[in-house]
Design a protein around this nucleic acid. Structure first.
Length: 555
RNA sequence: GACCCGGUAGCUCAGUGGAUAGAGCAUCACACUACGAAUGUGAGGGCCGCGGGUCCGAGUCCCGCCCGGGUCGCCA
Protein backbone atom coordinates (compact mmCIF):
# COMPACT_ATOMS: atom_id res chain seq x y z
CA UNK A 1 0.00 0.00 0.00
CA UNK A 2 2.04 2.89 -1.21
CA UNK A 3 -0.59 5.58 -1.40
CA UNK A 4 -3.36 6.34 1.01
CA UNK A 5 -6.77 5.10 0.08
CA UNK A 6 -8.29 8.54 0.48
CA UNK A 7 -5.71 9.94 -1.92
CA UNK A 8 -6.70 7.34 -4.51
CA UNK A 9 -10.33 8.29 -4.07
CA UNK A 10 -9.50 11.98 -4.34
CA UNK A 11 -7.52 11.32 -7.52
CA UNK A 12 -10.48 9.49 -9.05
CA UNK A 13 -12.77 12.40 -8.27
CA UNK A 14 -10.26 14.87 -9.60
CA UNK A 15 -10.13 12.89 -12.79
CA UNK A 16 -13.92 12.94 -13.03
CA UNK A 17 -13.90 16.68 -12.46
CA UNK A 18 -11.29 17.24 -15.13
CA UNK A 19 -13.34 15.33 -17.66
CA UNK A 20 -16.53 17.11 -16.76
CA UNK A 21 -14.68 20.37 -17.07
CA UNK A 22 -13.43 19.74 -20.61
CA UNK A 23 -16.50 17.92 -21.87
CA UNK A 24 -18.88 20.56 -20.64
CA UNK A 25 -16.67 23.52 -21.25
CA UNK A 26 -16.49 24.71 -17.63
CA UNK A 27 -14.26 27.58 -16.77
CA UNK A 28 -10.87 26.59 -15.48
CA UNK A 29 -11.04 25.46 -11.87
CA UNK A 30 -7.41 24.75 -11.10
CA UNK A 31 -5.95 24.92 -7.71
CA UNK A 32 -8.96 23.74 -5.81
CA UNK A 33 -7.78 20.83 -3.72
CA UNK A 34 -10.04 17.80 -3.65
CA UNK A 35 -10.87 17.07 -0.07
CA UNK A 36 -12.17 13.68 0.83
CA UNK A 37 -13.59 12.78 4.21
CA UNK A 38 -15.17 9.79 5.82
CA UNK A 39 -18.78 10.75 6.35
CA UNK A 40 -20.27 10.08 9.73
CA UNK A 41 -23.45 8.70 8.26
CA UNK A 42 -22.90 5.35 6.52
CA UNK A 43 -25.72 6.13 4.12
CA UNK A 44 -23.37 8.68 2.62
CA UNK A 45 -20.90 6.06 1.57
CA UNK A 46 -17.30 5.47 2.58
CA UNK A 47 -15.84 8.71 1.32
CA UNK A 48 -17.38 12.02 0.44
CA UNK A 49 -16.13 15.09 -1.32
CA UNK A 50 -17.53 18.59 -1.05
CA UNK A 51 -15.86 19.71 -4.24
CA UNK A 52 -19.11 20.62 -6.00
CA UNK A 53 -20.15 22.85 -3.11
CA UNK A 54 -16.81 24.58 -3.17
CA UNK A 55 -16.92 25.12 -6.90
CA UNK A 56 -20.50 26.28 -7.17
CA UNK A 57 -19.93 29.98 -6.77
CA UNK A 58 -16.90 30.17 -8.99
CA UNK A 59 -18.51 28.06 -11.71
CA UNK A 60 -21.85 29.80 -11.31
CA UNK A 61 -23.68 26.50 -11.33
CA UNK A 62 -25.73 24.70 -8.76
CA UNK A 63 -23.73 22.32 -6.59
CA UNK A 64 -26.11 19.53 -7.46
CA UNK A 65 -25.47 19.87 -11.16
CA UNK A 66 -21.74 19.92 -10.64
CA UNK A 67 -21.88 16.91 -8.35
CA UNK A 68 -24.01 15.04 -10.86
CA UNK A 69 -21.66 15.82 -13.72
CA UNK A 70 -18.67 14.65 -11.72
CA UNK A 71 -20.46 11.59 -10.45
CA UNK A 72 -21.23 10.47 -13.99
CA UNK A 73 -17.59 10.68 -14.96
CA UNK A 74 -15.71 9.15 -12.06
CA UNK A 75 -14.28 5.86 -13.23
CA UNK A 76 -15.93 3.05 -11.31
CA UNK A 77 -13.33 0.37 -10.71
CA UNK A 78 -11.93 -1.17 -7.54
CA UNK A 79 -11.54 0.14 -4.94
CA UNK A 80 -14.57 2.19 -6.03
CA UNK A 81 -17.86 0.35 -6.44
CA UNK A 82 -20.27 3.21 -6.87
CA UNK A 83 -20.43 6.98 -6.98
CA UNK A 84 -23.51 8.90 -5.94
CA UNK A 85 -24.41 12.52 -5.68
CA UNK A 86 -26.58 13.85 -2.94
CA UNK A 87 -27.24 17.45 -1.92
CA UNK A 88 -24.15 18.57 -3.72
CA UNK A 89 -21.84 15.98 -2.26
CA UNK A 90 -20.06 13.37 -4.30
CA UNK A 91 -20.22 10.15 -2.33
CA UNK A 92 -18.10 7.13 -3.00
CA UNK A 93 -18.79 3.56 -1.99
CA UNK A 94 -15.96 1.09 -1.71
CA UNK A 95 -16.05 -2.17 -3.56
CA UNK A 96 -16.88 -4.96 -1.12
CA UNK A 97 -14.79 -7.58 -2.86
CA UNK A 98 -11.89 -5.20 -2.78
CA UNK A 99 -12.54 -4.50 0.91
CA UNK A 100 -12.59 -8.19 1.73
CA UNK A 101 -9.34 -8.65 -0.14
CA UNK A 102 -7.72 -6.02 2.10
CA UNK A 103 -8.03 -8.46 4.97
CA UNK A 104 -5.30 -10.53 3.40
CA UNK A 105 -3.25 -7.43 2.72
CA UNK A 106 -3.45 -6.26 6.31
CA UNK A 107 -2.83 -9.65 7.86
CA UNK A 108 0.11 -10.22 5.58
CA UNK A 109 1.55 -6.77 6.21
CA UNK A 110 1.61 -7.40 9.95
CA UNK A 111 4.12 -5.07 11.56
CA UNK A 112 4.37 -3.20 8.26
CA UNK A 113 0.69 -2.28 8.22
CA UNK A 114 0.21 1.47 8.28
CA UNK A 115 3.83 2.33 7.62
CA UNK A 116 4.74 4.72 4.89
CA UNK A 117 7.69 6.50 3.39
CA UNK A 118 6.16 9.96 3.60
CA UNK A 119 9.16 11.27 5.54
CA UNK A 120 11.80 8.94 4.17
CA UNK A 121 15.20 10.56 4.19
CA UNK A 122 14.26 13.14 6.82
CA UNK A 123 16.21 13.44 10.05
CA UNK A 124 14.17 14.80 12.91
CA UNK A 125 14.92 15.57 16.49
CA UNK A 126 12.13 15.36 19.01
CA UNK A 127 13.09 16.94 22.30
CA UNK A 128 10.88 16.26 25.27
CA UNK A 129 10.67 16.36 29.06
CA UNK A 130 14.00 18.18 29.40
CA UNK A 131 12.97 19.43 32.81
CA UNK A 132 15.48 21.45 34.76
CA UNK A 133 17.87 18.83 36.10
CA UNK A 134 17.28 19.97 39.62
CA UNK A 135 14.87 17.33 40.84
CA UNK A 136 12.96 14.17 40.07
CA UNK A 137 10.32 13.88 37.37
CA UNK A 138 6.89 14.94 38.43
CA UNK A 139 3.54 14.26 36.86
CA UNK A 140 3.66 17.83 35.54
CA UNK A 141 6.87 17.79 33.58
CA UNK A 142 6.36 14.15 32.62
CA UNK A 143 3.40 14.91 30.39
CA UNK A 144 5.77 15.66 27.58
CA UNK A 145 7.13 12.11 27.86
CA UNK A 146 4.33 10.11 26.29
CA UNK A 147 3.53 12.98 23.90
CA UNK A 148 7.09 13.18 22.62
CA UNK A 149 7.68 9.46 22.62
CA UNK A 150 4.54 8.65 20.65
CA UNK A 151 5.10 11.49 18.20
CA UNK A 152 8.61 10.14 17.65
CA UNK A 153 7.21 6.68 17.02
CA UNK A 154 4.69 7.99 14.50
CA UNK A 155 7.33 9.97 12.64
CA UNK A 156 9.56 6.90 12.50
CA UNK A 157 6.56 4.91 11.31
CA UNK A 158 6.27 7.18 8.29
CA UNK A 159 9.92 6.90 7.44
CA UNK A 160 11.78 9.62 9.32
CA UNK A 161 15.00 9.01 11.18
CA UNK A 162 14.11 10.31 14.63
CA UNK A 163 16.33 11.12 17.56
CA UNK A 164 14.68 11.36 20.94
CA UNK A 165 16.54 13.98 22.86
CA UNK A 166 16.67 15.06 26.47
CA UNK A 167 18.24 18.49 26.75
CA UNK A 168 20.18 18.79 29.98
CA UNK A 169 20.31 22.34 31.19
CA UNK A 170 23.45 22.04 33.20
CA UNK A 171 24.46 25.69 33.25
CA UNK A 172 22.87 28.83 34.57
CA UNK A 173 21.25 30.16 37.67
CA UNK A 174 19.00 27.22 38.51
CA UNK A 175 21.92 24.87 38.12
CA UNK A 176 23.98 27.01 40.51
CA UNK A 177 21.11 27.25 42.96
CA UNK A 178 20.77 23.51 42.94
CA UNK A 179 24.45 23.10 43.77
CA UNK A 180 24.12 25.58 46.61
CA UNK A 181 21.08 23.78 47.95
CA UNK A 182 23.05 20.55 48.12
CA UNK A 183 25.98 22.31 49.76
CA UNK A 184 23.74 23.72 52.47
CA UNK A 185 22.32 20.30 53.23
CA UNK A 186 25.83 18.88 53.23
CA UNK A 187 26.84 21.44 55.83
CA UNK A 188 23.77 20.73 57.90
CA UNK A 189 24.63 17.05 57.86
CA UNK A 190 27.97 17.98 59.38
CA UNK A 191 26.21 19.81 62.16
CA UNK A 192 26.50 23.32 60.86
CA UNK A 193 23.69 25.62 61.86
CA UNK A 194 22.77 27.05 58.48
CA UNK A 195 19.37 27.88 57.12
CA UNK A 196 17.96 26.95 53.74
CA UNK A 197 17.42 30.25 51.96
CA UNK A 198 14.18 31.01 50.26
CA UNK A 199 15.39 30.61 46.70
CA UNK A 200 16.95 27.20 47.33
CA UNK A 201 15.41 23.82 46.58
CA UNK A 202 13.89 22.68 49.86
CA UNK A 203 12.77 19.12 49.12
CA UNK A 204 13.95 15.92 50.72
CA UNK A 205 15.79 14.58 47.70
CA UNK A 206 18.34 17.36 48.07
CA UNK A 207 19.20 15.93 51.49
CA UNK A 208 19.51 12.49 49.92
CA UNK A 209 22.05 13.78 47.45
CA UNK A 210 24.00 15.53 50.20
CA UNK A 211 23.89 12.37 52.27
CA UNK A 212 25.27 10.34 49.39
CA UNK A 213 28.18 12.73 49.09
CA UNK A 214 28.79 12.61 52.81
CA UNK A 215 28.65 8.83 52.87
CA UNK A 216 31.24 8.70 50.14
CA UNK A 217 33.56 11.60 50.99
CA UNK A 218 32.84 12.35 54.64
CA UNK A 219 33.85 15.86 55.64
CA UNK A 220 36.39 16.14 52.85
CA UNK A 221 34.67 19.23 51.38
CA UNK A 222 33.86 21.01 54.62
CA UNK A 223 36.94 23.20 54.43
CA UNK A 224 35.75 24.71 51.13
CA UNK A 225 33.67 27.88 51.19
CA UNK A 226 29.98 27.51 50.32
CA UNK A 227 30.26 28.78 46.76
CA UNK A 228 33.08 26.39 45.98
CA UNK A 229 31.07 23.54 47.43
CA UNK A 230 28.10 24.58 45.32
CA UNK A 231 30.22 24.48 42.20
CA UNK A 232 31.54 21.10 43.17
CA UNK A 233 28.17 19.57 44.02
CA UNK A 234 26.02 20.92 41.19
CA UNK A 235 27.30 18.47 38.58
CA UNK A 236 26.91 15.65 41.07
CA UNK A 237 23.35 16.69 41.67
CA UNK A 238 22.69 16.71 37.96
CA UNK A 239 24.19 13.24 37.69
CA UNK A 240 21.81 12.06 40.37
CA UNK A 241 18.83 13.68 38.67
CA UNK A 242 19.70 12.25 35.28
CA UNK A 243 20.17 8.79 36.73
CA UNK A 244 16.68 9.10 38.18
CA UNK A 245 15.26 10.53 34.96
CA UNK A 246 16.77 7.71 32.94
CA UNK A 247 15.39 5.12 35.32
CA UNK A 248 11.88 6.57 35.56
CA UNK A 249 11.46 7.36 31.87
CA UNK A 250 12.54 3.78 31.21
CA UNK A 251 9.77 2.64 33.53
CA UNK A 252 7.43 4.49 31.19
CA UNK A 253 8.95 2.75 28.21
CA UNK A 254 10.82 5.82 27.02
CA UNK A 255 14.37 5.48 25.77
CA UNK A 256 16.32 8.53 24.71
CA UNK A 257 18.90 8.48 21.96
CA UNK A 258 20.74 11.50 23.29
CA UNK A 259 21.13 13.33 26.58
CA UNK A 260 22.47 16.56 25.26
CA UNK A 261 24.38 18.81 27.61
CA UNK A 262 23.93 22.55 27.54
CA UNK A 263 27.41 22.96 29.01
CA UNK A 264 28.78 21.02 26.09
CA UNK A 265 26.89 23.24 23.67
CA UNK A 266 28.44 26.26 25.35
CA UNK A 267 31.91 24.76 25.01
CA UNK A 268 31.34 24.19 21.29
CA UNK A 269 31.40 27.94 20.69
CA UNK A 270 27.93 27.94 19.18
CA UNK A 271 26.71 30.56 21.57
CA UNK A 272 29.26 33.12 20.38
CA UNK A 273 28.83 32.03 16.78
CA UNK A 274 25.07 32.50 16.94
CA UNK A 275 25.39 35.84 18.67
CA UNK A 276 27.75 37.02 15.97
CA UNK A 277 25.32 35.95 13.28
CA UNK A 278 22.43 37.76 14.91
CA UNK A 279 24.60 40.82 15.31
CA UNK A 280 25.51 40.71 11.64
CA UNK A 281 21.83 40.51 10.78
CA UNK A 282 21.30 43.68 12.78
CA UNK A 283 18.94 41.94 15.19
CA UNK A 284 20.97 42.67 18.29
CA UNK A 285 21.59 45.77 20.36
CA UNK A 286 23.29 46.74 23.61
CA UNK A 287 21.54 48.41 26.48
CA UNK A 288 22.27 48.72 30.20
CA UNK A 289 25.35 46.59 29.72
CA UNK A 290 23.36 43.65 28.40
CA UNK A 291 22.96 42.24 24.90
CA UNK A 292 19.40 42.19 23.58
CA UNK A 293 17.53 40.58 20.73
CA UNK A 294 15.22 42.92 18.87
CA UNK A 295 11.62 42.05 19.52
CA UNK A 296 10.45 42.41 15.95
CA UNK A 297 7.64 39.95 16.50
CA UNK A 298 6.67 41.45 19.79
CA UNK A 299 3.03 41.24 20.65
CA UNK A 300 3.34 43.61 23.56
CA UNK A 301 5.30 46.76 24.20
CA UNK A 302 8.65 45.10 24.76
CA UNK A 303 11.54 46.29 22.65
CA UNK A 304 13.70 43.28 23.12
CA UNK A 305 14.80 40.34 25.17
CA UNK A 306 18.10 39.69 26.91
CA UNK A 307 20.60 37.35 25.27
CA UNK A 308 23.58 38.15 27.50
CA UNK A 309 23.05 39.52 30.97
CA UNK A 310 24.84 42.63 32.16
CA UNK A 311 27.01 40.50 34.43
CA UNK A 312 28.28 38.74 31.32
CA UNK A 313 26.39 35.49 31.87
CA UNK A 314 24.63 34.04 28.86
CA UNK A 315 20.88 34.21 29.29
CA UNK A 316 18.52 31.32 28.74
CA UNK A 317 17.06 32.70 25.53
CA UNK A 318 20.50 33.20 24.01
CA UNK A 319 21.54 29.69 24.96
CA UNK A 320 18.37 28.16 23.62
CA UNK A 321 18.73 29.93 20.30
CA UNK A 322 22.29 28.68 20.00
CA UNK A 323 21.21 25.16 20.92
CA UNK A 324 18.59 25.17 18.20
CA UNK A 325 20.96 26.57 15.63
CA UNK A 326 23.46 23.87 16.46
CA UNK A 327 20.84 21.14 16.13
CA UNK A 328 19.59 22.39 12.78
CA UNK A 329 22.94 23.31 11.26
CA UNK A 330 25.86 21.38 12.71
CA UNK A 331 23.92 18.36 13.87
CA UNK A 332 22.01 18.38 10.62
CA UNK A 333 18.40 17.81 11.59
CA UNK A 334 15.84 18.72 8.98
CA UNK A 335 13.43 19.52 11.74
CA UNK A 336 13.50 20.02 15.48
CA UNK A 337 10.26 19.44 17.34
CA UNK A 338 10.09 20.55 20.96
CA UNK A 339 7.47 19.36 23.40
CA UNK A 340 7.09 22.17 25.90
CA UNK A 341 4.85 23.04 28.79
CA UNK A 342 2.52 25.94 28.22
CA UNK A 343 4.39 28.13 30.69
CA UNK A 344 7.02 28.57 27.99
CA UNK A 345 4.65 30.19 25.59
CA UNK A 346 6.29 33.57 25.90
CA UNK A 347 9.65 31.94 25.36
CA UNK A 348 8.17 30.40 22.23
CA UNK A 349 7.31 33.84 20.88
CA UNK A 350 10.88 34.91 21.45
CA UNK A 351 12.26 31.75 19.87
CA UNK A 352 10.08 32.13 16.79
CA UNK A 353 11.35 35.67 16.32
CA UNK A 354 14.92 34.45 16.57
CA UNK A 355 14.41 31.46 14.29
CA UNK A 356 12.76 33.67 11.72
CA UNK A 357 15.66 36.08 11.77
CA UNK A 358 18.03 33.16 11.25
CA UNK A 359 15.97 31.64 8.44
CA UNK A 360 15.23 28.50 10.43
CA UNK A 361 11.58 29.03 11.26
CA UNK A 362 10.30 26.31 8.94
CA UNK A 363 12.47 23.74 10.67
CA UNK A 364 11.30 24.60 14.13
CA UNK A 365 8.10 23.17 15.55
CA UNK A 366 6.73 23.19 19.05
CA UNK A 367 3.96 21.21 20.67
CA UNK A 368 2.76 23.09 23.73
CA UNK A 369 0.93 21.12 26.34
CA UNK A 370 -1.15 22.65 29.08
CA UNK A 371 -0.13 22.19 32.63
CA UNK A 372 -0.90 19.32 34.91
CA UNK A 373 -2.25 20.10 38.32
CA UNK A 374 -2.70 17.63 41.12
CA UNK A 375 -5.03 17.18 43.97
CA UNK A 376 -3.28 17.75 47.27
CA UNK A 377 -5.35 17.37 50.41
CA UNK A 378 -8.47 17.93 48.40
CA UNK A 379 -7.23 21.07 46.69
CA UNK A 380 -6.00 21.44 43.14
CA UNK A 381 -2.46 22.71 43.08
CA UNK A 382 0.24 23.42 40.61
CA UNK A 383 3.44 21.54 40.99
CA UNK A 384 6.71 23.29 41.55
CA UNK A 385 10.01 21.76 42.48
CA UNK A 386 11.10 24.90 44.20
CA UNK A 387 8.09 24.89 46.46
CA UNK A 388 8.75 21.25 47.18
CA UNK A 389 5.21 20.46 46.18
CA UNK A 390 4.75 17.79 43.57
CA UNK A 391 3.50 14.36 42.68
CA UNK A 392 6.23 12.05 41.48
CA UNK A 393 5.83 10.31 38.16
CA UNK A 394 7.37 7.21 39.65
CA UNK A 395 4.64 6.97 42.29
CA UNK A 396 1.97 7.08 39.62
CA UNK A 397 3.63 4.41 37.50
CA UNK A 398 3.98 2.20 40.54
CA UNK A 399 0.37 2.73 41.49
CA UNK A 400 -1.34 2.15 38.13
CA UNK A 401 1.33 0.71 35.85
CA UNK A 402 3.06 1.85 32.71
CA UNK A 403 0.24 1.27 30.26
CA UNK A 404 -2.46 3.06 32.23
CA UNK A 405 -0.11 5.97 32.95
CA UNK A 406 0.78 6.44 29.32
CA UNK A 407 -2.81 6.07 28.24
CA UNK A 408 -3.96 8.61 30.78
CA UNK A 409 -1.59 11.22 29.38
CA UNK A 410 -2.47 10.37 25.79
CA UNK A 411 -6.22 10.45 26.06
CA UNK A 412 -6.76 14.15 25.75
CA UNK A 413 -5.26 16.70 23.45
CA UNK A 414 -2.14 18.57 24.54
CA UNK A 415 -4.22 21.74 24.59
CA UNK A 416 -6.28 20.53 27.46
CA UNK A 417 -5.28 20.94 31.04
CA UNK A 418 -5.04 17.78 33.13
CA UNK A 419 -5.86 17.37 36.77
CA UNK A 420 -4.36 14.40 38.51
CA UNK A 421 -5.91 12.79 41.53
CA UNK A 422 -3.70 9.88 42.52
CA UNK A 423 -6.28 8.21 44.72
CA UNK A 424 -8.89 8.44 42.03
CA UNK A 425 -6.40 7.21 39.44
CA UNK A 426 -5.67 4.12 41.49
CA UNK A 427 -9.31 3.54 42.20
CA UNK A 428 -10.17 3.90 38.54
CA UNK A 429 -7.17 2.19 37.08
CA UNK A 430 -9.21 -0.92 36.36
CA UNK A 431 -11.55 1.24 34.35
CA UNK A 432 -8.79 2.76 32.30
CA UNK A 433 -9.82 2.43 28.65
CA UNK A 434 -6.45 0.94 27.87
CA UNK A 435 -7.70 -2.35 29.28
CA UNK A 436 -10.74 -2.26 27.06
CA UNK A 437 -8.46 -2.07 24.05
CA UNK A 438 -6.01 -4.64 25.36
CA UNK A 439 -8.88 -6.95 26.13
CA UNK A 440 -9.97 -6.86 22.49
CA UNK A 441 -6.46 -7.85 21.49
CA UNK A 442 -6.31 -10.65 24.07
CA UNK A 443 -9.74 -11.85 23.07
CA UNK A 444 -8.63 -12.24 19.48
CA UNK A 445 -5.55 -14.09 20.63
CA UNK A 446 -7.81 -16.37 22.63
CA UNK A 447 -10.03 -17.03 19.63
CA UNK A 448 -7.01 -17.92 17.56
CA UNK A 449 -5.83 -20.29 20.32
CA UNK A 450 -9.21 -21.96 20.59
CA UNK A 451 -9.42 -22.38 16.85
CA UNK A 452 -5.98 -23.92 16.72
CA UNK A 453 -6.93 -26.36 19.48
CA UNK A 454 -9.87 -27.43 17.41
CA UNK A 455 -7.72 -27.85 14.37
CA UNK A 456 -8.83 -24.76 12.49
CA UNK A 457 -6.40 -22.10 11.32
CA UNK A 458 -6.70 -19.23 8.91
CA UNK A 459 -4.41 -21.02 6.45
CA UNK A 460 -6.04 -21.16 3.06
CA UNK A 461 -8.91 -19.02 4.27
CA UNK A 462 -10.80 -17.37 1.43
CA UNK A 463 -11.52 -13.78 2.40
CA UNK A 464 -13.99 -13.51 -0.48
CA UNK A 465 -16.42 -15.22 1.89
CA UNK A 466 -16.46 -12.06 3.99
CA UNK A 467 -19.51 -10.31 2.68
CA UNK A 468 -21.52 -9.31 5.74
CA UNK A 469 -21.72 -5.71 6.78
CA UNK A 470 -20.39 -6.47 10.24
CA UNK A 471 -17.36 -8.10 8.70
CA UNK A 472 -16.64 -5.41 6.16
CA UNK A 473 -17.15 -2.60 8.66
CA UNK A 474 -14.22 -3.96 10.61
CA UNK A 475 -12.11 -3.78 7.49
CA UNK A 476 -13.24 -0.23 6.86
CA UNK A 477 -12.12 0.75 10.34
CA UNK A 478 -8.80 -1.04 10.11
CA UNK A 479 -8.09 0.77 6.86
CA UNK A 480 -8.37 4.06 8.64
CA UNK A 481 -5.16 3.58 10.56
CA UNK A 482 -2.78 4.57 7.73
CA UNK A 483 -4.79 7.74 7.16
CA UNK A 484 -4.80 8.57 10.84
CA UNK A 485 -1.06 8.08 11.03
CA UNK A 486 -0.69 10.49 8.15
CA UNK A 487 -2.88 13.05 9.90
CA UNK A 488 -0.68 12.83 12.97
CA UNK A 489 2.41 13.25 10.81
CA UNK A 490 0.97 16.58 9.75
CA UNK A 491 -0.76 17.86 12.88
CA UNK A 492 0.98 16.06 15.76
CA UNK A 493 -2.31 15.19 17.47
CA UNK A 494 -1.10 11.93 18.94
CA UNK A 495 -4.09 11.63 21.26
CA UNK A 496 -6.18 10.64 18.25
CA UNK A 497 -4.56 7.23 18.41
CA UNK A 498 -6.28 6.48 21.72
CA UNK A 499 -9.66 7.49 20.32
CA UNK A 500 -9.08 5.28 17.33
CA UNK A 501 -7.95 2.35 19.46
CA UNK A 502 -11.11 2.61 21.49
CA UNK A 503 -13.27 2.73 18.40
CA UNK A 504 -11.61 -0.25 16.79
CA UNK A 505 -11.77 -2.28 20.00
CA UNK A 506 -15.43 -1.37 20.44
CA UNK A 507 -16.22 -2.39 16.88
CA UNK A 508 -14.54 -5.71 17.44
CA UNK A 509 -16.38 -6.39 20.71
CA UNK A 510 -19.65 -5.73 18.91
CA UNK A 511 -18.67 -7.97 16.04
CA UNK A 512 -17.73 -10.74 18.45
CA UNK A 513 -21.15 -10.71 19.96
CA UNK A 514 -22.96 -11.06 16.66
CA UNK A 515 -20.65 -13.34 14.76
CA UNK A 516 -19.33 -16.73 15.64
CA UNK A 517 -15.77 -17.00 14.41
CA UNK A 518 -14.87 -20.61 15.20
CA UNK A 519 -17.48 -23.01 13.93
CA UNK A 520 -16.43 -26.58 13.24
CA UNK A 521 -19.53 -27.08 11.13
CA UNK A 522 -18.42 -24.41 8.67
CA UNK A 523 -14.68 -24.57 8.24
CA UNK A 524 -14.42 -22.27 5.19
CA UNK A 525 -16.25 -19.46 6.92
CA UNK A 526 -14.27 -20.01 10.11
CA UNK A 527 -11.04 -19.73 8.21
CA UNK A 528 -12.15 -16.52 6.52
CA UNK A 529 -13.24 -15.00 9.82
CA UNK A 530 -10.04 -16.06 11.52
CA UNK A 531 -8.25 -14.17 8.80
CA UNK A 532 -10.45 -11.18 9.52
CA UNK A 533 -9.83 -11.14 13.25
CA UNK A 534 -6.13 -11.49 12.55
CA UNK A 535 -6.33 -8.34 10.46
CA UNK A 536 -8.12 -6.54 13.29
CA UNK A 537 -5.49 -7.77 15.68
CA UNK A 538 -2.80 -6.37 13.42
CA UNK A 539 -4.47 -2.96 13.37
CA UNK A 540 -4.87 -3.02 17.15
CA UNK A 541 -1.31 -4.09 17.71
CA UNK A 542 0.04 -1.42 15.39
CA UNK A 543 -1.97 1.23 17.19
CA UNK A 544 -0.99 0.08 20.66
CA UNK A 545 2.58 -0.25 19.48
CA UNK A 546 2.64 3.39 18.43
CA UNK A 547 1.17 4.33 21.80
CA UNK A 548 3.92 2.39 23.52
CA UNK A 549 1.37 0.20 25.24
CA UNK A 550 1.56 -3.59 25.44
CA UNK A 551 -0.57 -5.86 23.28
CA UNK A 552 -1.16 -8.83 25.56
CA UNK A 553 -2.31 -12.23 24.33
CA UNK A 554 -3.68 -12.96 27.79
CA UNK A 555 -4.78 -10.70 30.60
C1' G B 1 -3.53 45.50 30.49
C1' A B 2 -1.32 42.11 26.47
C1' C B 3 -0.74 37.18 24.81
C1' C B 4 -1.67 31.54 24.94
C1' C B 5 -5.09 27.25 26.20
C1' G B 6 -9.83 25.51 27.67
C1' G B 7 -15.55 26.01 28.27
C1' U B 8 -19.59 19.96 24.18
C1' A B 9 -24.40 14.73 28.28
C1' G B 10 -24.36 14.40 35.78
C1' C B 11 -18.50 13.50 35.52
C1' U B 12 -13.89 12.82 32.27
C1' C B 13 -13.23 13.91 27.43
C1' A B 14 -13.36 12.84 21.45
C1' G B 15 -15.13 15.59 17.41
C1' U B 16 -9.34 17.52 9.82
C1' G B 17 -15.87 23.90 7.76
C1' G B 18 -20.13 19.29 6.02
C1' A B 19 -25.29 15.89 5.98
C1' U B 20 -29.12 13.34 12.17
C1' A B 21 -23.02 16.11 17.67
C1' G B 22 -20.16 10.92 19.86
C1' A B 23 -17.41 7.62 23.53
C1' G B 24 -16.11 6.06 28.42
C1' C B 25 -17.65 6.46 33.44
C1' A B 26 -22.07 7.13 36.43
C1' U B 27 -27.76 5.79 36.64
C1' C B 28 -31.67 2.27 35.22
C1' A B 29 -33.28 -2.37 32.65
C1' C B 30 -31.45 -6.71 30.27
C1' A B 31 -27.85 -10.89 28.15
C1' C B 32 -23.11 -16.19 29.85
C1' U B 33 -24.79 -24.92 29.23
C1' A B 34 -21.59 -20.77 22.62
C1' C B 35 -14.90 -18.89 20.27
C1' G B 36 -12.54 -14.70 27.15
C1' A B 37 -18.90 -10.97 30.69
C1' A B 38 -12.13 -6.67 31.72
C1' U B 39 -17.89 -7.87 27.15
C1' G B 40 -22.47 -6.76 24.77
C1' U B 41 -27.77 -4.70 24.05
C1' G B 42 -31.38 -0.99 25.28
C1' A B 43 -33.07 3.59 27.95
C1' G B 44 -32.67 8.31 29.99
C1' G B 45 -29.51 12.53 29.70
C1' G B 46 -27.24 18.37 24.98
C1' C B 47 -29.56 26.86 24.36
C1' C B 48 -21.84 22.59 21.93
C1' G B 49 -20.35 29.42 27.76
C1' C B 50 -23.14 34.12 25.68
C1' G B 51 -23.87 37.62 21.52
C1' G B 52 -22.76 39.14 16.65
C1' G B 53 -20.41 38.02 11.77
C1' U B 54 -18.35 35.18 7.36
C1' C B 55 -20.15 30.99 4.46
C1' C B 56 -24.39 27.09 0.32
C1' G B 57 -23.19 25.05 5.37
C1' A B 58 -20.30 26.86 12.03
C1' G B 59 -19.27 22.83 18.03
C1' U B 60 -15.25 23.87 14.33
C1' C B 61 -13.34 30.17 11.19
C1' C B 62 -13.52 35.86 12.59
C1' C B 63 -14.95 39.84 16.27
C1' G B 64 -16.81 41.17 21.19
C1' C B 65 -18.06 39.62 26.08
C1' C B 66 -18.28 36.05 30.44
C1' C B 67 -15.97 32.03 33.31
C1' G B 68 -11.57 28.77 34.49
C1' G B 69 -6.21 27.93 33.85
C1' G B 70 -1.40 29.79 32.19
C1' U B 71 2.40 33.47 30.75
C1' C B 72 4.41 38.42 30.35
C1' G B 73 12.37 38.28 34.84
C1' C B 74 19.18 40.60 33.07
C1' C B 75 14.95 32.54 36.27
C1' A B 76 15.01 28.43 33.21
Amino acid sequence: MTTLLRDDIAAAIKDGLARASTELGWPKVDGVPIEVVRPGNPEHGDYASNIALRLARQARMSPRDIAKAIRERVRVAPPIAAVEDLSGFVNVRLDEKWLAAQVDEIARAGAEFGRSKALAGKRMQVEFVSANPTGPLTVANARGGPLGDVLSSVLEFVGAAVEREYYVEDTGTQFDTFGRSIAIRYRQLHGEDIEVPEDAYPAEYVKDIAAEIKARDGDKWMKLPLEAQAKRFAPEGVEWVLREARRVTAMLGIHYDTWFSQAEMMRSGYFEKTLAELRKLGKVYEKDGAVWLQATEAVDDKEGWVLVRSNGDPGYLGKDIAYHVQSLRERGFDKKIDIWGSNTHYHLIQMRAAMKALGLLDKFEVVLYQYVRFLHEGVLKRMAKRSGQFLLLEDVIEAVGKDATRYFFLQSSADRQLDFDLELAVQQSNENPVYYVQYAHARIASILRTAAERGITSDGGDVALLTEKGELDLVRLALRLPELVDDIRQHYGVHQLTTYALELAGAFHGFYRDHRVVDEADAPRSKARLRLVQAVQVALRQTLGLLGVNSPDKM
